[in-house]
Amino acid sequence: MSHLVVRDLSVVLDRRAVLSGVGLDVRDGDWLAVIGANGAGKSTLLRALAGVLPFGGEVLVDDVPLRRLKPRERARLLACAPQSPALPVDMTVFDYALLGRTPYIPYLGRESRHDREVTASVLERLDLSPLAARPLARLSGGERQRVVLARALAQQAPVLLLDEPTTALDLGHQQQVLELVDRLRLADGLTVVTTLHDLSLAGQYADSMMLLSGGRVAASGSPAEVLTGELIGEHFDARVRVAAGPGGRPEVHLERP
């Protein structure tokens, strides 16, 4: 398990401040859900944490500043499953998941037997073994999401970043993906950070939440502290009713004006 700390993170793109002064603290094995309206900076935050975008401030995993690490070293600490990855249509499920082992393969080298065993084990845990030889073009939406997750898990990094893992999935597949992430988090002690549009889903699964608005942290805390009618109304321009669901977790219901 690993402790993720972000201090005063900022991102400037095309001379515009997209994120300013963002801080977060995710304890070992916890799940943080980042929420916010479109354009709030959620995906930018995950891309900065993953090292895809330049940023100001500090990101630490177990007190190790990621800025000092080479990309391969960073990839051994943080794995990221992007919202809309480029999926080579002719590549097989196994070969795509095997790309997650890249941080461990020497330059100009080939994957080892261990790399292939790790990849096969991940596919088995995600119920993807029967699809290992299938081209990515022949997968359903839910299968593609699991394959993207498989590549991230094959990195064996203690911190997992997931950008909208339920995008374009029906209700059943949304639940399957989030239940799978939760089981893997508990079994492997992963520290998880996800962005999620569905506020009720975020409230059901996350240990803590952070609300971004205009590139800044508008609220953070437990799901019950962040998912309030007042905060949602102010930052999403929506009229909602928040009720306690199973286990006392908040559920958000839209109401007609």
Rank of each mutant, 00 (worst) to 15 (best):
L199V: 07
M209N: 00
L212C: 04
D182S: 13
G172H: 12
P165D: 06
H173Q: 15
L199C: 00
A202L: 08
S200N: 09
V192C: 12
L184G: 01
R185A: 02
H197R: 01
T194A: 13
A202H: 03
A218T: 05
H173E: 12
L211R: 01
L190S: 00
A206F: 08
Q204R: 12
M210N: 03
V181E: 07
A187C: 13
T166V: 15
A187I: 04
T167F: 07
D170G: 04
V217N: 04
S213N: 15
Y205T: 05
V192W: 02
T166A: 09
T166N: 01
L169D: 10
L190A: 02
G203L: 09
L184T: 10
T194K: 05
L212T: 02
V177L: 11
A206H: 04
T195E: 11
R216H: 13
Y205G: 07
L169A: 07
L190E: 00
H197M: 04
V177P: 00
S200M: 11
D198M: 01
Q204S: 13
Q204C: 07
L184S: 05
D182P: 07
L196P: 02
G189R: 05
A206Y: 07
Q204H: 12
L212M: 05
T167H: 10
A168F: 15
L178V: 08
T166H: 03
A219L: 11
S208A: 14
M210Y: 07
A218W: 05
D198G: 03
G189V: 04
A219Y: 11
L178H: 02
D188H: 12
T166S: 07
H197P: 06
V181P: 00
S213I: 03
L178Q: 04
L201R: 10
L211G: 03
G215W: 01
G215S: 14
D188P: 01
D188F: 01
L186V: 12
A202K: 08
H197D: 03
S208L: 09
D170T: 10
L212E: 06
D170Q: 02
H173P: 05
D182N: 13
A202V: 12
Q204F: 07
S208K: 13
G214Y: 08
L171A: 12
V181C: 04
L212G: 00
A168T: 12
P165T: 06
L201S: 08
S200F: 10
D198K: 06
V217D: 00
D170Y: 09
G189T: 06
G189F: 00
Q174H: 10
L180C: 14
G214Q: 08
G215T: 10
A187E: 15
R183E: 14
A168K: 11
A202M: 13
Y205H: 14
A218M: 11
R216A: 15
D188W: 12
L184V: 13
A168W: 14
G172T: 12
G203N: 07
A202N: 10
D188Y: 09
V177C: 08
